[in-house]
Design a protein around this nucleic acid. Structure first.
Length: 428
DNA sequence: CTATAACTCTCAA
DNA sequence: CTAACGTTGAGAGTTATAG
């Protein structure tokens, strides 16, 4: 029988910001989403103030001033680097690890039973605290869904001790009474909509969901929820996914810092997004067979004239060449653009992605590609940007001033990935 | 009618 | 000072369409 641990960093983004600025210890800290839009991470002090997750930043400016909340723009360079360090440490605790998100990993622990799972969890916790200064919680259980739930219990101190909750050690009675205290919406895979429907059926707690009729739930909901219920009962239905599968589609989109009216600016943005997506495409050694472009006005300003449109272009020949992809994207953009609107967001998606080795050439149209030359050009572009930083070499179409770029008013230094940022740490 | 494509809904971090 | 509300990806189910 498998034993899964779910290791989750506490308040990850906020904790990363605090790490490198000791003055922030015990201070309320939030991290904002892209464009400084919404609160996406809160330190313990902020949670204690009752500031909800996901609230638009501008709506809590009053409270923020009153309580001295310190806000940071998202600093993904920093969070990704810290995340890699966490993964590296966790990898020494199990050969079988799934990196589930930027701040969460599943570990397979069945081989470590002789340690005692709670002890093993404590060692993990201590190691990450000692080596990185980050706090994590550990949930241990025979299924991934239960490990998630156990992690929740550890965080809320509903069960377990010192940030570790081991469900495998609990009796059926203990489990039942624990699950009675937890709302059904806390279960992994049960979101807003399904919670509402379950509530309407009288299912409010995790215990009720676990004990509900699986057949009925499958009919009324889906096979997904049925699996969830079986996992809650201790039957493992979800495997550890150790290898990250290649993407089937790659999306790049952003809200603008201010409303954009001109086609020229939209073109720069779209070209920039294509560049980023094409880099990712080449990194997985694949080609895209189609590209979609979309633009839209601000849906949060219903009083302003609204317009949104998307267009998908099938490519005559699958490609990973930024220039080719950008060309088609810009053609599509010009088709869907309407003057007279204030645009709030644009994005592109690369579709019909296939491994480069599976490239299908056209039977009727002679290939436009001078493959080795074009491939070498893109490889060189990627190499230069890998060495000198993203955007060091780019299409002219991406623009220079980029007046449309997102707001990042409170960005912290890249403490661990940039020499100037490192110097900032030294100066503290 | 069936098989597939296209689209919609839901979820997660 | 203004005005200001994220991004990315997947899977399952439903509906439309082709043959």
């Amino acid at each position: 029988m498998p034993v899964f641990a779910l290791v989750d960093c506490n308040n990850f983004y906020a904790s990363c910001e605090k790490l490198f600025n000791p003055q922030l210890k015990d201070k309320p800290v939030v991290v904002l989403s892209n464009n400084d839009g919404c609160v996406v991470a809160r330190s313990a002090e902020v949670k204690a103030l009752g500031i909800p997750m996901g609230v638009p930043w501008f709506k809590i400016q009053q409270d923020a001033r009153r309580y001295g909340i310190v806000a940071f723009s998202s600093n993904y360079a920093l969070y990704a680097d810290m995340s890699n360090r966490v993964v590296e440490i966790l990898s020494s605790f199990s050969c079988n690890i799934e990196v589930y998100s930027i701040d969460e990993c599943f570990l397979e622990l069945s081989g470590f039973a002789r340690w005692g799972f709670p002890t093993y969890g404590q060692v993990i916790r201590q190691r990450i605290a000692d080596w990185l200064g980050l706090a994590v919680c550990v949930g241990i259980a025979p299924t991934k869904t239960l490990a998630k739930l156990a992690n929740h219990c550890a965080k809320k101190e509903l069960a377990g001790h010192n940030g570790v909750c081991d469900v495998t050690a609990m009796t059926p009675d203990q489990l039942s009474s624990l699950f009675e205290q937890i709302a059904v919406g806390e279960v992994w895979g049960v979101g807003r909509k399904i919670t509402a429907r379950l509530e309407a059926m009288g299912i409010h707690t995790v215990r009720q969901l676990r004990d509900a009729n699986a057949e009925t739930l499958r009919n009324r909901f889906s096979v997904v929820l049925e699996r969830t219920v079986r996992e809650l009962r201790g039957l493992s239905c979800l495997d550890l996914e150790e290898v990250v599968p290649d993407r089937q589609q790659i999306m790049s989109s952003r809200s603008f810092g201010t409303l954009v009216h001109d086609l020229a600016d939209l073109e720069e943005a779209v070209a920039s997004y294509v560049s980023r997506a094409a880099e990712k495409l080449r990194a997985q050694d694949a080609l895209a067979g189609a590209i979609q472009v979309y633009i839209r006005t601000n849906i949060f300003k219903p009083e302003a004239p609204q317009y949104q449109q998307a267009m998908t272009v099938p490519l005559p020949e699958a490609s990973s060449d930024t220039r080719v992809l950008a060309n088609w994207a810009l053609r599509a953009l010009r088709r869907i653009y309407r003057a007279g609107y204030g645009y709030h967001k644009a994005g592109i998606t690369l579709l019909e992605i296939v491994p480069r080795t599976n490239q299908q050439f056209s039977l009727f149209v002679p290939s436009q590609r001078e493959s080795s030359r074009d491939d070498r050009l893109m490889a060189t572009l990627d190499a230069i940007n890998g060495r000198y930083g993203r955007g060091a070499l780019r299409l002219a179409a991406e623009g220079v001033a980029k007046t449309w770029q997102m707001r990042r008013g409170n960005l912290s230094p890249r403490y661990t990935t940039d020499w100037d940022g490192v110097a900032t740490v030294a100066a503290v």
